[in-house]
Design a protein around this nucleic acid. Structure first.
Lengths: 218, 218
DNA sequence: ATTATCTTTTAGGTATACCAAAATTAATAA
DNA sequence: TTATTAATTTTGGTATACCTAAAAGATAAT
């Protein structure tokens, strides 16, 4: 199997199962990778043979310790590059994902560690996603989705779970930037929309948008 | 054909025919790419169909205008990355080639132009090889191999044609660094060896080493 | 000019990474 | 429980990028 193929599968399995250590279905993998489910079955059997995943047919897949280590390495490279592109090379946070998708496959520890060092070994990327350190350790975070927020409470925006340029541009337009402090004035029971105060302005946010905003209680 | 495959063929054809606009033989391509000549034949037929090369069977291959443009783009990316790795990220000039070999395939003009800008749009990489500008234009150079040098003449070291770590380390040991000024005291007719003066020291250089040093007459 | 040599091409084959369609298996609803 | 639906796997492809071994073509040497 080509290294890049392995990496793309492992990364995707990881992203679909990270928090919960749950198994991943072929369907979801096929959707995410934009390939036929039949191809996923085939690939998973090989990844199982290579000891990257535990795959039991018609049940599901999860990463082995080796596979998980490898996935975390890829995630580290991706997020370090995203951060470097934004912080050092002047790219917008909505345009770095695609480039990082290519750069993440360049496997050279010295390079990534050097970039990380220049950035001051950051723990979060420009989207607020945590960056594992060289040993694969994440900084613990007890962040929640804004959807779970309580009324009359202050939060800080820590990240987003939807990385699409459309969504990021929407946030920028409404000044919902990472690091911004917000105050949830009210949660509307009827439709779950939130009335929040941010940057001296009141904004109404749909549950959909709230679900994609990661916040920390203040 | 995969983009990376195309790029590797075009780059190699370019490197084997750049100065002279001569045709490249399958043999040399096969050697350079470490693949079987039969595979080269096959690939060249496809590259011909794709209009990247003009390939006439049992004769040879040369790049079309499109192929040449593409090859120069790849060379630019490679050399910009090598320069960036050395100048901005603290890598040694003997360890950047391999990394650049991967990074050169990341195709994003904004990225490369940004790196070039940070470097002050350099015309030469750390090995003294010319870097084409964004439009594919090289700075004209009339450099020669030190082997063609005349006695009692001063030169400046501009580059090397052997990029192997062994050779680069040898040069460093003898302080034959790019940018160094040297004076050729004598050329020994018997074996073609040169007695040169560099950094306040006399050194004897074999024709083999001299052949891999690119210099400019002062 | 003819042989010998070296290069290139052809022919046939492998492994990878995908696919569509059919068959199977699992999950859900009546 | 049985039927229906949905997910998964099997089967039988395709295209890419390589390979080896043998045939054909070009080059050089006597």
């Amino acid at each position: 199997m080509r290294a890049e193929t392995i990496e793309n599968y492992l990364k995707t399995i990881y992203n679909l199962s990270s928090d919960n250590r749950a198994v991943v279905t072929n369907q979801r993998l096929a959707d995410r990778l934009n390939i036929n489910p039949a191809s996923v079955t085939e690939a998973l059997r090989k990844l199982h043979e290579l000891k990257y995943v535990v795959y039991e047919k018609s049940y599901g897949t999860r990463l082995t310790a080796i596979g998980s280590k490898m996935a975390i390495d890829i995630v580290r490279r991706h997020r370090i590059w995203e951060t470097y592109l934004v912080k050092e090379l002047g790219f917008g946070w909505d345009e770095v994902h695609e480039i990082a998708e290519e750069l993440e496959h360049v496997k050279n520890d010295k390079l990534i560690n050097k970039l990380a060092e220049i950035l001051g070994n950051p723990s979060y990327d420009p989207h607020g996603d945590p960056i594992p350190d060289a040993k694969g350790k994440f900084q613990k975070n007890k962040f929640i989705s804004l959807q779970e927020a309580k009324a009359k409470t202050s939060y800080k925006i820590m990240g987003v779970s939807d990385h699409s340029p459309v969504f990021l541009k929407y946030l920028e337009k409404n000044q919902l930037i990472i690091g911004a402090d917000i105050f949830v004035k009210d949660v509307e029971e009827v439709d779950g929309s939130l009335l929040i105060h941010c940057n001296k302005k009141d904004v109404i946010i749909t549950p959909k948008v709230a679900g994609n905003l990661i916040v920390k209680a203040l």
